[in-house]
């Protein structure tokens, strides 16, 4: 079943306390080569068929509902063969 993937990230200038906590945990494990972690969102929108119209609608929804432009950026909207999991 094809899906449309929407990736959303918090704006770079905003605090990401969850990402910071993970980065701290990595450093404590001795995995300090990962100097920072930022956590975003991945939406998988299931569709019967990927068309230009449905992709355009997904892009619109990504900007209007799935993200808030004040605090987040839509990184990517793309069609994939199947859900990840």
């Amino acid at each position: 079943m094809p899906v449309i993937v929407v990736e959303v990230m918090p704006k770079a200038e905003l605090l990401d306390p969850a990402g910071k906590a993970v980065a701290t945990a990595l450093a404590k494990r001795g995995d300090g080569e990962f100097t920072a972690v930022r956590i975003g969102k991945r939406f998988e929108l299931h569709v019967d068929e990927v068309t230009d119209a449905v992709l355009a609608k997904a892009q619109h929804l990504a900007e209007e509902l799935l993200s808030n432009a004040v605090i987040e950026n839509v990184v990517r909207v793309y069609a994939a063969e199947d859900a990840v999991a």
Binding site: L14, L15, P17, V70
Partner: peptide
């Protein structure tokens, strides 16, 4: 804010 009746956004408290 989410309904766009007021501007801006509200995010996690600075102290977490």
């Amino acid at each position: 804010v989410e309904a766009h009746l007021l501007p801006g956004g509200l995010i996690r408290n600075e102290a977490g």
